[in-house]
Design a protein around this nucleic acid. Sequence first.
DNA 1: GTCCCTAATGTATACGATTACATTGCTGCT
DNA 2: AGCAGCAATGTAATCGTATACATTAGGGAC
Lengths: 345, 345
Amino acid sequence: MSVSMREIAKIANVSSATVSRVINCSNLVTPETTERVRKIIQDLNFVPNNSAIHLKNGKSQIYGIIIPDLTNPFFTETIKIFEELLVENDKELLVANTDFHSTRTQKSVRRMLLRRVDGVALLTSEFEAAPLESLVQNRIPVVTTDHYRTGSGMSDIVVDFAEGMAQIVSHLKSLDHHNLGFIGGTEGLVTSRVRRESFLDAVVKQGLSSREGWIVEGDFKIEGGSAAMAKILSQPELPTAIVTANDLTAIGALRTAHARGLRIPQDISITGCDDIAMADIVYPPLTTLEISRKEYARLLFEALRVGTEDVMRAGKQYTLPTRLVVRQSTGPAPSTEKPRQRRSR
Amino acid sequence: MSVSMREIAKIANVSSATVSRVINCSNLVTPETTERVRKIIQDLNFVPNNSAIHLKNGKSQIYGIIIPDLTNPFFTETIKIFEELLVENDKELLVANTDFHSTRTQKSVRRMLLRRVDGVALLTSEFEAAPLESLVQNRIPVVTTDHYRTGSGMSDIVVDFAEGMAQIVSHLKSLDHHNLGFIGGTEGLVTSRVRRESFLDAVVKQGLSSREGWIVEGDFKIEGGSAAMAKILSQPELPTAIVTANDLTAIGALRTAHARGLRIPQDISITGCDDIAMADIVYPPLTTLEISRKEYARLLFEALRVGTEDVMRAGKQYTLPTRLVVRQSTGPAPSTEKPRQRRSR
DNA sequence: GTCCCTAATGTATACGATTACATTGCTGCT
DNA sequence: AGCAGCAATGTAATCGTATACATTAGGGAC
């Protein structure tokens, strides 16, 4: 099909070994020979076949990334930086999207195995670790997020929600909020549980309160946020501020609130999490927790790089800090009795 | 490193050929043998090495997609669907992001060559077609967008901006707008030129007017839209409606307009293009042109599939229709003199 | 029983690059 | 001159899979 090294070799009147040496910049070749071979490579537009290289030396130079939602800017922004890191290091990126389905996660893992990727970054945190076993078994390093488990060849990046939620709650407390609601992520994901528990922890520790009907499940997407907000608003009494599991959820909540005629933040404060670009664009701009995509991508790469060097090394746990970003979706608590009565519309 | 077919063969007491036949479901193998081999494959968690397969039969089963902006939802939504199509067909996707830099486009093309992808979808439309040559030369089918050129092994998908812009302009005309502004895309891209000219064409054909200072370059991103809007607002006279090259641009324009105290659409109407999910979420929701991601992804895949079957076949030109979606960012033209004076702030 | 045909399996090579090892020719030292 | 030693290049095996071709065995037709 396309040109091979042997053809180059034939034309240049050398052996394929010499051509290989030229390509890999071995210093065992005469400058003249190098020059001649280089020219022919140029002329014929020769590009080496990566599969052959892979087959020979066992490294595919491809990393895989498995994410739950390709339309969530937090992930695409992370992927973008991760991809840049890989390209800088002459590696390639395979993207798999799961839409939060565990069957699709399993299929994705299988795809990664098929392509013999050099490492897998798992940005989703389903409970089942089953498919990960097969990766480790095939000596492919893995880095997970909020998985709270490490092992041989398995690292984990933990987002510091404990600290983050504490900051959010503290910020709301300083604005005189006492009754907080929470819209979480999809049930069944470790990361959802962690976010919710971190929130509750902070609420209790700081002496504020929440209650059953104010804590609702979402799906990490706008729709889920909208629906969850509607549920909360159907309660007889309302919290003065609502903390959410991510920015998309917050945006959905914002939307429902607007539709019901609530003013943000005068009537109710809402916070997000992630600090996606959109957070600063919606109305009103979201108070949220920044999670640095740059740092995240860097940690993912670092964890896999270390893992690739020594597959059997025990994985490490990395911590990803958060930073409170205050914008206009939070404001002083409305000065009515607490918990205040539901507004009649 | 990991298990190979030969090891399976040895354990099953058959030849590697038989194992290969079992895997590829040849009907030349006894059910008993098949069963036995299958079991061992299961037990050992064997996954064939795709690079070896690729090397043998010349198909990598990987498609590449080169996009200008991985953070633009229009592209990620398209990628998501495209990826699903590929996975359904047991193919893999390589994503390359160029950030609109032509050097990065060239590098991306080279990456695609290195990995010997079976086809490349180019969602960016730089003027230079140079790197495409090398793809065609290596018999890799290519599908471009708004490139307005086809060739052997090169198909093109053309978004029907002529019709789309006509619909937008007609919609604005029906709202009594006569003076329209336009915020375009990055200078130097074919698609930017096409969008601008389609707009101007429609304006002229429908007897409306525009003028030099109202037609400003953007960058297909929010920032560019903001900046461009600021430029337009610095004109002594203002249009009553502004058409933009894509939704992100429109969102940026919206933002600047809000910051300057303009009400949308009472003071000025703004339209977008793409109908990304965000278009319905910003305030006010954008009147825009829907470009079906589903159809787009389908066409990309179709074009490459056909190209893969017969590389030398002449490429085809596909047309992607647009559909006007009216929301709240457009309204009746303000009933002042036209063109109206700039509001003093 | 012989022959042929077919089903089932085995053997061996090719794909394209890398690389250990072999070879060649030259320089320079004694 | 003879030989060590090194630089430059060549030879050939290898990675894991697919497959053309070879082989074997069994069954039916005569």
